[in-house]
C-alpha cells in the first residue's frame, strides 16, 4: 500500500467513524428494572420453597433453612436495586424535564 493511499484512507476513517455523542436511547433505567425483577422472582421462589418444604438434606447441612433465609436476602437485594433505580437522580431529571 502506498503512502498516498494510506493518508487518504486515514481521513476517510476519521470522518466516517466519528459519530454523534448520543443516539438518544436511555438504557440505564431499563437495566435497573430488569435486574430487580429477576432477583425478586428468584427471592420469592426461594422463600416459598423454604416455607413449603423444610428443604432436602444436603451433605453439608448447615442446620438452618438455606432457601428461606437466602431467598429473603434476594428479596431485600431486589427491593434495594428497585429503590435505587426509582430514586436515581437521572430519573428525577427526566421527570422534571417532562413537566
Amino acid at each position: 500500500m502506498t503512502e498516498e493511499h494510506q493518508t487518504e484512507e486515514h481521513h476517510d476513517y476519521l470522518e466516517e467513524e466519528r459519530v454523534p455523542e448520543h443516539s438518544g436511547t436511555n438504557h440505564s433505567m431499563a437495566i435497573g428494572f430488569y435486574i430487580a425483577a429477576l432477583i425478586l422472582i428468584y427471592g420469592v421462589t426461594m422463600v416459598l420453597v423454604g416455607m413449603l418444604s423444610a428443604g432436602t438434606a444436603t451433605e453439608g447441612d448447615l442446620g438452618f433453612n438455606v432457601n428461606f433465609w437466602w431467598g429473603l436476602v434476594l428479596v431485600v437485594s431486589g427491593c434495594v436495586i428497585l429503590g435505587l433505580t426509582l430514586a436515581s437522580p437521572r430519573r428525577r431529571a427526566a421527570r422534571n424535564q417532562q413537566q
Binding site: Y42, V49, G50, T56, T58, N67, G71
Partner: peptide, 10 residues
C-alpha cells in the same frame, strides 16, 4: 455440597 434444591438452581 452446601446448596439444597432451589438454592442450587440459583
Amino acid at each position: 455440597y452446601y446448596f439444597p434444591t432451589g438454592m442450587l438452581g440459583f
